[in-house]
């Protein structure tokens, strides 16, 4: 008997509806020296069903409550900081990602003041515009952890639910983030994360009639980006195109990723009666 302990190795699985299933196809692949589930189109379908089911509860929660839950996610991220660093991520990037998450969490109860309000109208009415989430958002995420956080957080902070496709060659940070989300009071289905080959699964997500918007941040192949955008036109999804050059996720993110997935609802309310 040797004293050397055999380490327990982890199988990295998908994250759908708050659970960690294997791919329905049973496939897996090796990435970053680990066994990772290789999602199929049916996993995309299941993830969209889970995301759709979560829309009502998540978008109906108060902004304050969503903010609390997202802060909780940041607390959990902080607690698992070493685990992310252990995946080989630069310390600075992990810290920046946690800070980025907190920054977005703060926006949950502020975005409606900035992007909504009372409109002046010539009549005895109150006219109020308020931003509302668009629904289910598909995300093709970039390989960097900061980039991953920078596309997931802005989509969910306003009340959308997401199906995120992790980068093919760097899926471990995404699955580890899923483990954080699963222990953070985030309702199941708000974030669904699929590992595998986005070139295989993204076309199904882009064409899915029950997905309302898609963010192509992680697509580097311009031809694929164009074909995904064409598929997304089938039900007039909102699309964020990938930037032509490699994006620097450390830059000020601005508000565009949050506002891209909002619809404005305007109501007229008679006054003085």
């Amino acid at each position: 008997m040797s004293d050397a302990r055999v380490a327990v190795r982890k199988t990295y699985k998908l994250f759908i509806g708050g659970k960690f299933p294997r791919s329905e196809s049973g496939r897996s692949y090796i990435a970053q020296d680990a066994n990772v589930a290789l999602a199929s189109r049916k996993d995309v379908r299941d993830a969209v069903v889970a995301a759709r089911a979560a829309v009502k509860g998540w978008s109906g929660a108060t902004a304050y409550n969503r903010g609390q839950i997202l802060y909780r996610v940041a607390e959990m991220l902080e607690g698992r900081r070493d685990q992310f660093i252990g995946l080989g991520l630069p310390t600075a990037e992990v810290d920046e990602a946690i800070d980025r998450w907190v920054w977005y969490a703060g926006w949950s109860d502020k975005i409606s003041q900035v992007y909504g309000g009372a409109n002046p109208v010539a009549g005895p009415y109150f006219n109020l515009s308020s931003p509302e989430p668009t629904g289910v958002v598909g995300l093709v995420t970039p390989p960097s952890f900061l980039g991953l956080v920078s596309v997931i957080a802005p989509a969910i902070v306003t009340g959308n639910t997401v199906v995120a496709l992790a980068a093919h060659d760097a899926p471990l940070a995404a699955v580890t983030l899923a483990e954080v989300l699963a222990t953070s009071d985030l309702p199941g289905g708000v974030v669904n994360i699929l590992t595998g080959d986005p070139a295989e699964t993204a076309p199904w997500l882009a064409a899915h009639m029950d997905v309302n918007a898609i963010d192509l941040a992680g697509v580097t192949d311009q031809t694929l980006a164009t074909s995904l955008e064409e598929a997304a036109a089938g039900n007039l999804k909102r699309v964020i195109r990938p930037s032509a050059s490699t994006p620097s996720w450390s830059d000020d993110p601005g508000l565009t990723r949050m506002t891209a997935f909002l619809e404005t609802k305007t109501v007229w309310h008679p006054k003085g009666i």
Partner: peptide
Amino acid sequence: TGVYAGPDY
């Protein structure tokens, strides 16, 4: 159609 349908339709 070859694409997943949604209940909105």
